[in-house]
C-alpha cells in the first residue's frame, strides 16, 4: 500500500491549512446596527437582496430568512462548496437558525491522477441561537456537527474503502458593540467529540513467490484522533471588527487549536491564531 484514506485526508486538510493560514482568516463581522448583524457562528442572516464579497467568501441573501454562500479559494483546489443558512425564528431578543453546506473534493482533479477515484465530502451542519443581552451586548451559541466521508480508492496498490472523521463543536461568540462602526468579539470554540467511522481494505503479498495475497477488510482505526476531544481541544480568539456602510474588516489574535474554516477540521496542535478578514457588503 502506498497511500491510504487517512493519508489522503491529511493531504486534503493540509491543502486547506495552507490556503486558510496564509492569512489565517476567520470570516468577519458586519455593520453594527439593529438590522445588520454578525452572521458567522451567530443565528443572524444578511438582509433580503444583500450581497457579500470578501477575500474568503461570496454570499447572497435572496430573502431575509435565507442566505447562500461559498468559500471561493477552495474552488482553486478543486473543492466545490456551497452553504445554506436559514433563520427559523426571531424576535427582538432571540434568533434561531440552521445552516448546512457541502464541500466536495475530487482527488483525481486535484492530483491529476487518473488512477484514483477518491472523493471527499464534508457536510457541516449548524444550529445557532443568538440572544441580545442589551443594546450593546449579544451572545451566540452555535453547535456544529461536521460529517466527513471519503470513498473510492486512492493508490496504485488496491487500497479502497470509505472513511470519515466527524466531529461536534460548540462555538460561543460574545459581541460588544463599542460604537456604530467598532465592535469587539470574543469567540471560543470547543471540540466536544470526534467520531471516526470508516472501512477500507488492504491487499498485501504473503511470502515472496507472488502466489499468495491477503486482503484485509476492516474498519478504520482511531488512534490518530485519540488526543482530540473535550476539553483539551479548544481555541479562544478575541478580535476587533470595523464596519462602515459597505466595507468591513476584522483582525485579532488568539490561541488554541486552529480550526480549518468551513470544513471544521481542528488542528491537533495549539498555536497562536491570527485572524483577518475583509469584505464588502451591500
Amino acid at each position: 500500500m502506498r497511500e491510504e484514506v487517512g493519508r489522503t485526508g491529511r493531504r486534503f486538510a493540509a491543502a486547506f491549512l495552507l490556503a486558510a493560514t496564509a492569512l489565517a482568516s476567520t470570516p468577519a463581522t458586519a455593520y453594527h446596527d439593529k438590522t445588520s448583524h454578525v452572521t458567522e457562528y451567530t443565528a443572524h442572516n444578511m438582509s433580503s437582496g444583500e450581497w457579500k464579497i470578501g477575500i474568503w467568501q461570496v454570499g447572497f441573501a435572496p430573502w431575509d430568512w435565507l442566505m447562500v454562500d461559498t468559500w471561493h479559494f477552495p474552488w482553486l483546489l478543486s473543492v466545490s462548496n456551497i452553504g445554506l443558512k436559514a433563520r427559523f425564528w426571531h424576535d427582538d431578543t432571540w434568533t434561531v437558525s440552521g445552516r448546512t453546506g457541502i464541500f466536495k473534493l475530487d482527488v483525481a482533479k486535484l492530483t491529476k491522477d487518473e488512477n484514483t477515484d477518491m472523493v471527499f465530502k464534508v457536510v457541516p451542519t449548524e444550529l445557532a441561537v443568538s440572544q441580545r443581552l442589551s443594546p450593546d451586548w449579544e451572545l451566540s451559541l452555535a453547535g456544529i456537527y461536521t460529517g466527513v466521508v471519503a470513498s473510492g480508492s486512492a493508490d496504485e496498490n488496491e487500497v479502497e474503502g470509505a472513511a470519515g472523521e466527524s466531529n461536534v463543536q460548540a462555538v460561543f461568540t460574545l459581541e460588544w458593540r463599542w460604537s456604530h462602526k467598532w465592535a469587539m468579539l470574543l469567540r471560543t470554540r470547543h471540540l466536544l467529540s470526534v467520531q471516526v467511522s470508516g472501512k477500507g481494505s488492504t491487499t498485501t503479498d504473503v511470502g515472496d513467490d507472488g502466489f499468495t495475497t491477503m486482503t484485509f477488510h476492516g474498519n478504520a482505526g482511531t488512534s490518530d484522533v485519540a488526543d482530540l476531544g473535550f476539553p483539551e481541544t479548544f481555541s479562544i480568539v478575541p478580535s476587533l471588527a470595523y464596519s462602515s456602510e459597505v466595507f468591513n474588516v476584522e483582525f485579532g489574535l488568539g490561541y488554541g487549536n486552529m480550526n480549518l474554516p468551513g470544513i471544521n477540521f481542528p488542528v491537533p496542535v495549539k498555536t497562536w491564531i491570527p485572524t483577518f478578514d475583509m469584505f464588502w457588503r451591500w
Binding site: V159, G200, T202, T204, V206, M214, F216, G218, G221
Partner: peptide, 24 residues
C-alpha cells in the same frame, strides 16, 4: 497490532473485519 487496532501496510483497522487469502 497497536493497542486496540491493527495496522496493515500503514492502514489502521480495528473492530470487526475479515481477511481473504487467495492462492494462485
Amino acid at each position: 497490532t497497536q493497542g486496540q487496532s491493527i495496522t496493515v501496510a500503514g492502514q489502521e483497522y480495528e473492530g470487526d473485519g475479515y481477511i481473504e487469502v487467495t492462492r494462485v
